[in-house]
Design a protein around this nucleic acid. Structure first.
Lengths: 262, 262
DNA sequence: GAAATCAACTGGTCTGACCAGCTGTCCGGT
DNA sequence: ACCGGACAGCTGGTCAGACCAGTTGATTTC
């Protein structure tokens, strides 16, 4: 590419709060300021950055809305560093859905894609230790059925995290988690939450055992299809009528080849 | 579920700036305040919300960092409403990568999954008008080869947008775009950018025509495989050595079943 | 009529102040 | 010696007022 094609880039003004936020963000992402550590007090940051307090506060607001830090009034230790979480991913996805740019059906379909792919990769790339972790979480789920839905869901999340680790792609797992949270947020309150929760949990455990078996046998196709089927069965009723057939389209991916294969 | 199981939820204090940000965000996502419209001036918002200016400003900072609005000093029209964009999605993904929670290889693999699925769905669900839009953008790309990489990439993005529309899942397209941006951001500067740009553009056009043909023939499997292959060929050299075999794993998905198939 | 000027905005920043909440210390009662 | 409450000194959250620089459009000037 010729150098004179774009010799100078337009330079846009950089606000003071951006510089402050960038410096702190770099420290957090760079590994200084690990999760759990504390930022100096705002008035101290004012000294270190040599800016006004409102500037520091706007920078902290940006970092907080990105989920990197959390501050509490009166905390003499300063704002807490949270590290990188998928929280803002899910809030961004939730915004997309709330703005009707995407629908619940699309979110569910997205989860079908992500979970299926996680399972597929896990089936191909897992090691022995991964299987043990997954089995352990399924056992925990089964034991926690009587404790309550919350504890159960926690073990469920850990199972999926184990699958994500086995797939050797943390990003897929994080995004799946974010989409899951967004779905829960959208569907919240609309769920029947009837007293068949227990039956559902038992079915869920059985489903997870099937997935684990497929992964253990390195049958990625079956593991993927199981994830798609479970999500479809669980969410299809909540999805808008006209979107349901689209979901069904994702359901058949991979298991049956397209009509005009080659 | 028994009502007395959790009779009261812990109530956490809601900051004033949050309330302000929520109100504005709801208006934007709800459809009042469409993209392109303007917010009142800060000092006017101070009157309407009955809070201090710093509170209003922190709320606006949050909205701005979420990509919902953009403000410019001296603009007598007030902050501009941008609507929902995938920008914060891609910045969130970029943060994940920069923090070494995920790697370039995972990003590329993620793109392979998303693009492949978009293509697959587009092959299954497209209508005639979709095909026309895609063909039009490919022609534009070809015409813009001589104009420059920037214009070319723009047409390329429009092609993928057309595919996303055909897939009837806007979310997939938006996320694919976000991941694309994150990849570009990570790889920026590291790319050779040699003078074979023109050759690459020509190959790219040919690749897109192949994809379009596969979609037109409703061969979702082939369309998906084409996307995976193109991404792999283009990015494999930039991916960390130890991650490359993982990419290859994604490459074979769907086209060849896992080694232990049934 | 075109160009320079200027007044009235805007957002960005700083300062200083006050409030409410948290925490460790210190003091008095047991 | 121990324990519990008051309190001082911090924290972050909010507000008010000020100033600056940039934008804009009307006004003046040539």
């Amino acid at each position: 590419m010729p150098a004179h094609d774009a010799p100078f880039r337009p330079v846009q003004p950089v606000r003071a709060y951006q510089r402050v936020a960038e410096q702190i963000e770099d420290r957090i992402l760079g590994g200084d300021l690990p999760p759990g550590s504390r930022l100096p007090a705002e008035r101290e940051l004012v000294n270190q950055f040599a800016v006004g307090r409102s500037t520091v506060r706007e920078a902290l607001r940006v970092l907080q809305s990105a989920g990197l830090i959390r501050s509490r009034p009166g905390d003499p230790l300063g704002a807490e560093v949270l590290g990188v979480t998928p929280d803002n991913l899910s809030s961004a996805l939730g915004r997309l859905t709330r703005s009707h740019l995407s629908s619940l059906g699309e979110l569910v379909q997205f989860r079908m894609v992500l979970d299926a792919e996680s399972n597929r990769l896990a089936a191909r790339l897992h090691r022995e230790a991964d299987l043990a972790r997954m089995a352990e979480q399924i056992d925990r789920m089964e034991a926690l059925i009587d404790v309550g839905l919350h504890a159960f869901s926690e073990a469920d999340a850990l199972f999926h995290q184990a699958v994500a680790e086995a797939s050797r792609n943390a990003l897929l797992g994080l995004c799946a988690r974010a989409v899951h949270d967004a779905v829960v947020d959208v569907i919240k309150g609309r769920i029947a939450s009837s007293d068949d929760t227990r039956a559902w949990m038992e079915r869920s455990v059985a489903h997870h055992r099937q997935v684990l078996a497929a992964i253990r046998e390195r049958d990625g196709e079956r593991a993927a299809a199981l994830a798609r089927r479970a999500l479809y069965d669980y969410y299809a009723d909540h999805v808008e009528e006209e979107k349901r057939e689209l979901l069904a389209a994702a359901l058949e991916d991979g298991s049956v080849a397209g009509p005009a294969l080659r």
